[in-house]
Nucleic acid binder design. Structure first.
Lengths: 150, 150
DNA sequence: GATGGCACTAACTTTTAGAAAGTGCAATCT
DNA sequence: AGATTGCACTTTCTAAAAGTTAGTGCCATC
């Protein structure tokens, strides 16, 4: 019942585009992000989306309150931060703790799952930042070639 | 000149929101995705965005032509696939090879950089798919709590 | 007493994504 | 022989998402 592809049970109405070779590859993951209607898709978008990934790595170092988080993540709007935090809380990556003082004080932190995920994102981002000079050179040569043939 | 934060040279007009503690943390990365106008931001979006990450992991196993890729990545439109492939090619993650036959045959594959990146994304996605049952339970209890207090 | 911070929500506007159709050529059905 | 399908996209149009602005109530600080 919890499946998107591979050789597990197929969740009804879930389009999967696996090749036959994948069906007996020995993996027993019940979910597949490449399948159009797999429930893992929206979750992937929450953690890798424009703001989701940045929120997770901003919380990686230490918990933070709403406006402090907003300062850490350069350029995020209040709306998108609130929306993103809600989604990540619902998915179980972020914990929201309300201290019932006056005025109320709300603290956001990573759950164990969120912490693991943030660690992997951090590695990806370090890899990217390290590769950036190479990426910039690639963009320049691409743009040069594109304007040359125009 | 190639910098976004930390203790490197600051690229002009680049808002960085680093805490003073980060300035002498011993890291010498010149780019910082948390900084609003760092050139690494759009690149991060290309590789982690809705379709970028799926295209990279779809190309991880083997190179593919446009329409085959479209079949692998469930639900992607032609426009978004073309757009995403262009961005990934420009950034140096994907190589586009045109065989000048009639009709022309176009093959997309991962560059070494794209391959490394796809590996990290693959690990993240495996981690996610493995955690999905937990995520689903979290969503359910969140929704139950939300409807209870309404 | 005015300003600013906190933690948001709601309304409105702009940008982006997705859907649909068009292009031109060649190989494959009928 | 004519029709359909596939390839590799681009262009146009509309629906959805993101971003901007303003507003809420309360409190501490200038």
């Amino acid at each position: 019942m919890l499946s998107c592809g591979g050789h597990g049970v197929i969740l009804e109405g879930m389009d999967t585009q696996q090749t036959p070779a994948d069906a007996d590859a020995g993996e027993d993951f019940a979910f597949d992000v490449l399948a159009q209607r797999c429930p893992s898709r929206p979750v992937l978008e929450h953690i890798t989306g424009r703001w989701g990934s940045l929120v997770l790595i901003a919380l990686r170092e230490k918990p933070a309150r709403f406006n402090e988080l907003r300062r850490r993540v350069g350029g995020v709007s209040e709306k998108m931060l609130a929306q993103g935090l809600h989604a990540l809380e619902r998915d179980g990556f972020v914990a929201r703790e309300v201290h019932s003082t006056i005025p109320p004080r709300v603290e956001y932190s990573l759950t164990p799952l969120g912490s693991q995920t943030a660690e992997m994102l951090w590695e990806l981002i370090m890899h990217l930042e390290y590769a950036m000079p190479h990426v910039l050179r690639s963009q320049q040569s691409y743009d040069a070639a594109a304007s040359a043939e125009a």
